[in-house]
Simulated scan of single mutants.
Amino acid sequence: MIQVIDRVFNILEHLRDSQVLSLSCLAKHMGLNKSTLCNILKTMTDLGYIENDGSGNYRISEKFKQLAQPLPQEELLKSQCMHFCKMLADETRESGVITALRHRSLSILAQSQYPRSLMISMAVYENLSLFHSVSGRIILAHLRPPELDEIIDRYGYPGAEWEDISTHAELENACRELRKSKLSVMTNQTDGIKAFAMPVFDAKNRICGAMGLTVPLFRLDGGREPVILRALRECAAQLSLKNINLNLTCKTWRLL
């Protein structure tokens, strides 16, 4: 056992039980001389894990209390999303993004960029349109009918933003094709980029978000596109499974 670590945790346990203790009381409880204990307390205070109230009394700091608290579900969700987004970016060496539907608008939960000489600007993910983005379309395609109706009531039909769709039948046909392929693709010849997105599902197999990639067209030469799509599919599937393990509820992601 490493002695100093044992002493640090003993100090924390004594402060937890008594809330506030003086140097003399701590030294007595722990059977240490004040000089040795003072050095340990100074280091712990400098690191911000305990506090000295100015009169020689010590207590556990808010910083340490926060370490012991579980992450709020929202932060836990974003942390997990960032992990998988970075995994996708590293595996494909491209820029990735994870989105969800919040307040009937597309919200970015995580984005990551692989460092290359030519990189897709993260600005492409700002102000994403539900109808004119691969992530928005793949999420819309998997919504339940009442949820899709809410979107139509708020925004109307896509029109020029999505193949001039102007009727419910046209929208349903487009959504059906996306559900069948579980893949949304858009090419921007002007900017020389191609975007892909696949759905992420919750524990009840309901849509809860989308994982996407944006790639310069010239980097798709030489049969690289199937490799990228395979990595995207695997990462989206793993994130779906992680939602089950984390018990992240649909409420966190969906129409709030």
Rank of each mutant, 00 (worst) to 15 (best):
E75V: 06
F84L: 08
D90H: 12
A68N: 06
S79I: 07
N52G: 08
N57V: 01
T92Q: 07
C85T: 10
G56T: 14
G54F: 09
G48K: 06
P70L: 13
I50A: 05
E75L: 12
I98S: 00
T92H: 08
C85K: 09
I50K: 10
M82S: 15
K63L: 14
E94C: 04
S55G: 00
S61H: 02
E51N: 10
Q66I: 05
E91R: 14
S55D: 04
F84T: 03
C81W: 08
K78C: 09
A89I: 05
Y58Q: 12
L47D: 11
E91S: 11
M87L: 13
G96N: 02
Q73S: 14
Q69N: 05
G48D: 07
N57C: 06
G56W: 12
N52P: 04
N52C: 10
L76C: 07
E62K: 05
S55I: 02
K63W: 04
L71S: 06
C81P: 04
S95H: 07
E94I: 03
L67H: 07
R59Y: 06
Q80Y: 14
I60C: 01
S79K: 14
S61D: 01
P72I: 11
F84E: 02
L88N: 04
E94W: 03
E51Q: 12
N52D: 15
F64T: 05
E94R: 11
C85Q: 08
R59Q: 13
Y49R: 00
N57P: 00
Q66D: 12
L47G: 11
N52K: 13
Q69L: 11
M82Y: 11
C81K: 04
S61M: 04
I50H: 08
R93N: 08
R59H: 08
Q66K: 08
D53N: 15
Q80W: 13
I98T: 01
V97A: 08
L67A: 01
Y58V: 09
A89N: 07
T92Y: 05
G48C: 04
H83S: 03
V97P: 00
E91L: 14
E74C: 02
D53I: 08
E75W: 05
E94G: 00
Q66Y: 04
T92W: 07
F64N: 03
C81D: 06
T92D: 04
G48L: 07
V97S: 03
S61F: 02
S95M: 10
D90F: 13
L67T: 11
G96R: 00
L71E: 08
H83M: 12
I98C: 01
L71K: 07
S61P: 00
G48F: 03
Q69S: 05
C81T: 07
P72E: 15
M87Q: 15
I60D: 02
E62G: 00
G96S: 15
E75P: 00
E75D: 13
K78Y: 01
Y58S: 11
D90P: 00
L76H: 12
N57Q: 10
L77Y: 06
T92I: 09
F64Q: 05
D90R: 14
L71N: 00
E51L: 10
D53F: 02
Q73D: 13
Q73F: 09
N57A: 09
S79T: 15
K78S: 03
M82A: 15
A89S: 15
E51W: 04
E51S: 07
E62L: 10
L77C: 10
K78L: 02
M82F: 11
L67N: 06
Q73P: 01
Y49L: 15
C85D: 13
A68E: 12
S95T: 15
P72N: 14
E75C: 02
Y49K: 05
L71D: 02
L76N: 12
